[in-house]
Amino acid sequence: MINCHSASRLISKSREYPLPLLKRFSLFIHLKACDACHNFLRHVEIFSRVAKNPEDSNQDIDEAMKMRILNHLRHHQNTPPNHL
């Protein structure tokens, strides 16, 4: 049976790509018997969930900001690009 070090590595990798069948199977067997790695699997999912949904700021772009950006863009558009 694989140890926790290998199992946790597989857990992390499984977030990036589908594991080959044999590795998936050995991870499955390990998780059946190991609470710690089972917790790690759940935690890795939590990390992903928390990172993906940052707190909503409730702040919106306002008209003044729109005008500032637009003026900046117009100015930029009328200046001939210097990188060519």
């Binding site: 926790c4 946790s8 609470d35 710690a36 790695c37 917790n39 759940r42 999912e45 939590i46």
Partner: peptide, 14 residues
């Protein structure tokens, strides 16, 4: 032996 030094605990409902 490849065991956790600080084993992940149950943190509750994800």
């Amino acid at each position: 032996s490849g065991h956790w030094v600080n084993a992940p605990a149950d943190w509750g409902d994800p």
